[in-house]
Protein backbone atom coordinates (compact mmCIF):
# COMPACT_ATOMS: atom_id res chain seq x y z
CA UNK A 1 0.00 0.00 0.00
CA UNK A 2 1.20 3.47 -0.83
CA UNK A 3 0.08 6.78 0.49
CA UNK A 4 -1.39 9.53 -1.61
CA UNK A 5 -2.29 13.10 -0.91
CA UNK A 6 -5.65 14.34 -2.18
CA UNK A 7 -5.71 18.10 -2.63
CA UNK A 8 -9.07 19.80 -3.01
CA UNK A 9 -9.47 22.89 -5.13
CA UNK A 10 -12.66 24.80 -5.57
CA UNK A 11 -13.50 27.83 -7.68
CA UNK A 12 -14.73 30.90 -5.84
CA UNK A 13 -18.11 32.66 -6.04
CA UNK A 14 -20.83 32.55 -8.65
CA UNK A 15 -23.23 30.73 -6.45
CA UNK A 16 -26.02 31.57 -4.15
CA UNK A 17 -26.22 29.27 -1.19
CA UNK A 18 -29.23 28.58 0.92
CA UNK A 19 -29.17 26.93 4.35
CA UNK A 20 -30.46 23.75 2.71
CA UNK A 21 -27.76 23.68 0.01
CA UNK A 22 -25.17 24.15 2.65
CA UNK A 23 -26.46 21.43 4.93
CA UNK A 24 -26.64 19.09 1.94
CA UNK A 25 -23.07 19.88 0.93
CA UNK A 26 -21.78 19.50 4.48
CA UNK A 27 -23.42 16.10 4.63
CA UNK A 28 -21.79 15.05 1.34
CA UNK A 29 -18.35 15.85 2.69
CA UNK A 30 -19.06 14.03 5.89
CA UNK A 31 -20.39 10.98 4.06
CA UNK A 32 -17.50 10.94 1.64
CA UNK A 33 -14.86 11.08 4.39
CA UNK A 34 -16.75 8.44 6.38
CA UNK A 35 -16.87 6.27 3.27
CA UNK A 36 -13.08 6.42 2.95
CA UNK A 37 -12.67 5.63 6.63
CA UNK A 38 -14.96 2.62 6.49
CA UNK A 39 -13.05 1.25 3.48
CA UNK A 40 -9.85 1.53 5.51
CA UNK A 41 -8.37 3.93 2.97
CA UNK A 42 -8.25 6.98 5.19
CA UNK A 43 -4.82 7.66 6.68
CA UNK A 44 -4.86 11.20 8.02
CA UNK A 45 -6.77 14.41 7.70
CA UNK A 46 -3.46 16.24 7.78
CA UNK A 47 -2.84 19.63 9.22
CA UNK A 48 -5.51 22.31 9.27
CA UNK A 49 -4.72 25.24 7.01
CA UNK A 50 -5.77 28.61 8.34
CA UNK A 51 -7.85 30.58 5.92
CA UNK A 52 -5.67 33.64 5.81
CA UNK A 53 -2.30 33.75 4.09
CA UNK A 54 -0.05 35.59 1.72
CA UNK A 55 1.39 34.79 -1.67
CA UNK A 56 4.89 35.89 -2.64
CA UNK A 57 5.48 36.35 -6.34
CA UNK A 58 8.49 37.27 -8.47
CA UNK A 59 9.66 40.82 -7.96
CA UNK A 60 8.78 40.75 -4.29
CA UNK A 61 5.06 41.16 -4.95
CA UNK A 62 3.07 40.02 -1.95
CA UNK A 63 -0.67 39.56 -2.06
CA UNK A 64 -3.05 38.76 0.74
CA UNK A 65 -4.95 35.54 0.80
CA UNK A 66 -4.01 31.94 0.19
CA UNK A 67 -4.43 32.33 -3.53
CA UNK A 68 -2.19 32.18 -6.51
CA UNK A 69 -3.58 33.66 -9.70
CA UNK A 70 -5.61 30.61 -10.43
CA UNK A 71 -9.27 30.00 -10.96
CA UNK A 72 -9.34 27.49 -8.16
CA UNK A 73 -8.38 27.93 -4.55
CA UNK A 74 -6.60 25.22 -2.62
CA UNK A 75 -8.84 24.31 0.25
CA UNK A 76 -7.51 21.45 2.29
CA UNK A 77 -5.95 18.03 1.86
CA UNK A 78 -6.14 14.55 3.27
CA UNK A 79 -3.94 11.49 3.01
CA UNK A 80 -5.28 8.15 1.87
CA UNK A 81 -3.71 4.80 1.13
CA UNK A 82 -4.16 2.73 -2.02
CA UNK A 83 -2.36 0.12 -4.12
CA UNK A 84 -1.57 2.49 -6.93
CA UNK A 85 -2.37 5.88 -8.47
CA UNK A 86 -5.38 4.52 -10.34
CA UNK A 87 -6.91 3.11 -7.21
CA UNK A 88 -6.24 6.35 -5.34
CA UNK A 89 -7.94 8.24 -8.16
CA UNK A 90 -10.95 5.97 -7.84
CA UNK A 91 -11.17 6.95 -4.17
CA UNK A 92 -11.39 10.59 -5.19
CA UNK A 93 -14.58 9.91 -7.15
CA UNK A 94 -17.58 11.23 -5.31
CA UNK A 95 -15.60 13.99 -3.65
CA UNK A 96 -18.00 16.92 -3.21
CA UNK A 97 -15.35 19.40 -4.43
CA UNK A 98 -16.10 18.11 -7.93
CA UNK A 99 -19.83 18.77 -7.51
CA UNK A 100 -19.12 22.44 -6.85
CA UNK A 101 -17.04 22.77 -10.02
CA UNK A 102 -13.69 22.12 -8.35
CA UNK A 103 -11.11 19.38 -8.70
CA UNK A 104 -9.15 16.85 -6.70
CA UNK A 105 -5.45 16.47 -7.35
CA UNK A 106 -4.01 13.05 -6.48
CA UNK A 107 -0.28 12.90 -5.74
CA UNK A 108 1.75 9.93 -4.52
CA UNK A 109 3.78 10.61 -1.38
CA UNK A 110 7.43 9.49 -1.40
CA UNK A 111 8.99 7.64 1.44
CA UNK A 112 8.16 5.01 3.99
Amino acid sequence: MKEFMLLFRQPPFDHNTTPQDWQALAKKWKDWVEGLTSKGSFVSNGQRLAMEGKVLKPGGVITDGPFVEAREILGSFIIVKAENLDEATTLAHGCPAIDTGGSVEIRPIFGQ
Binding site: F8, Q10, P12, F13, D14, H15, N16, T17, W22, L25, A26, K28, W29, K30, V33, N45, G46, R48, A50, M51, E52, G75, S76, I78, P96, A97, T100
Partner: peptide, 29 residues
Protein backbone atom coordinates in the same frame (compact mmCIF):
# COMPACT_ATOMS: atom_id res chain seq x y z
CA UNK B 1 -21.64 35.51 -3.14
CA UNK B 2 -18.67 36.10 -0.89
CA UNK B 3 -20.55 34.88 2.15
CA UNK B 4 -21.95 31.88 0.28
CA UNK B 5 -18.43 30.96 -0.67
CA UNK B 6 -17.29 31.07 2.94
CA UNK B 7 -20.00 28.55 3.77
CA UNK B 8 -18.95 26.25 0.92
CA UNK B 9 -15.40 26.26 2.27
CA UNK B 10 -16.73 25.56 5.74
CA UNK B 11 -18.59 22.51 4.46
CA UNK B 12 -15.34 21.11 3.13
CA UNK B 13 -12.95 22.03 5.91
CA UNK B 14 -15.21 21.35 8.87
CA UNK B 15 -16.09 17.89 7.68
CA UNK B 16 -12.61 16.93 6.57
CA UNK B 17 -10.69 18.48 9.44
CA UNK B 18 -13.31 18.75 12.13
CA UNK B 19 -15.32 21.67 13.46
CA UNK B 20 -13.26 24.71 14.51
CA UNK B 21 -13.54 25.94 18.09
CA UNK B 22 -15.25 29.14 17.04
CA UNK B 23 -17.23 28.54 13.82
CA UNK B 24 -18.41 32.14 13.50
CA UNK B 25 -14.89 33.57 13.79
CA UNK B 26 -13.69 31.04 11.22
CA UNK B 27 -16.40 32.17 8.81
CA UNK B 28 -15.49 35.84 9.33
CA UNK B 29 -11.85 35.20 8.46
Amino acid sequence: DIVSDAFLKAAETWYVKGMPANPAAWLYT
